[in-house]
Write a protein that binds this DNA or RNA. Structure first.
Lengths: 122, 122
DNA sequence: ATTAAACGACTACGCATGTAAACACTGGAT
DNA sequence: ATCCAGTGTTTACATGCGTAGTCGTTTAAT
C-alpha cells in the first residue's frame, strides 16, 4: 500500500532516486528547464510527497533535505503489478503481445527478454 | 491521442467490449453488483465516455444504445506504450524484469512469453 | 385518463492533481 | 542596522474523477 504517486510527483521522485538527499532548489534545478515548471510547483510537489511519507525531510539550517523513503524498485514493482492486474487480468503475456503488435519490441528487446527468461529458469 | 479513460470508466468499457451495443441499464446489470455502483453512477460514466467520443450513442426509442468507438486492442496498446514509456523509459525488458523479481511470472508465463517471442522472430 | 416506472439530462460535492501566486521568515551582504 | 534573495507554508483555482441525487419527460399499465 505504497501511497499513490501522481505523474508529476513521479518526475520528482526520479530525480531523488538518482541522487539524494537534495534541497528543493537542487531538485528544481534538475527539472525546471526540462518540464517547464516553476520553483513553486516543485516545492508543492515535494511537500505533497513528504505529506504522503514517500519522501523524508531533514532540516539543514533553514532548508530541508529530501530523501526517498520508498525504493525505486519496490515502487516500480508495485505499480507494474497493479497495471498488469487492471488491464491484463494479471497476465504478463498479453501485455508483451500488445507491445509486440505495436512494434514496440525491437530485435534487441527480444534478445534481452529471452536472455532474461533463460536466467529465470536457471 | 485516444482520450484518457479513468479506472471506473474502463470497467464500463470492458463490458461493452465484451458485448455491444447495450443500453445503460444493460451495462449496469453487468457491473452494479460486482462494483457496488448505483445505476446513476453507471449512467454518469456512460455519458462521460460518450462525451469523450470513446462511446458512440444511437437512439432506440427513448433509450440509448452504447457502442465502443475505440478497439480494445488499440486502447490497450496505447496505454501499455504510455506506461512503459513513463516508467521504464520505453524499455520493456526492465518491466519484465520487475515482474519477474516480484515472482509475478509463473513457469507457465515464461513458457508463453518464450513461445510468443519465437513467433515474433519467425 | 392517471399514475408509476424508466430514462436521459443536469447538478452536486469532496478529493486528487497540475500549476502556481502570495506570504512570512531568515540569514548573509552591505 | 537594513535589506534582499532564498526558503518553507498557506492559499488558490481549474479540471478530472468517483459517486450519486434530482428533475423533467415519456411510456406502459391500470
Amino acid at each position: 500500500m505504497v501511497e499513490r504517486i501522481s505523474d508529476a510527483e513521479h518526475e520528482i521522485m526520479e530525480v531523488l532516486w538518482t541522487q539524494s538527499p537534495l534541497t528543493a532548489t537542487e531538485v528544481a534545478d534538475r527539472v525546471v528547464e526540462s518540464k517547464g515548471w516553476s520553483l513553486q510547483t516543485v516545492k508543492t510537489l515535494l511537500s505533497r510527497l513528504a505529506a504522503k511519507a514517500v519522501l523524508g525531510t531533514q532540516r539543514d539550517g533553514r532548508k530541508f533535505l529530501y530523501t526517498p523513503l520508498v525504493e525505486r524498485d519496490a515502487y516500480l514493482a508495485g505499480v507494474s503489478r497493479k497495471f498488469v492486474d487492471r488491464l491484463f487480468g494479471g497476465k504478463v503475456t498479453p501485455l508483451v503481445a500488445h507491445l509486440a503488435d505495436a512494434d514496440e519490441l525491437s530485435d534487441e528487446d527480444i534478445r534481452e527478454i529471452e536472455e532474461l527468461l533463460r536466467e529465470l529458469k536457471a
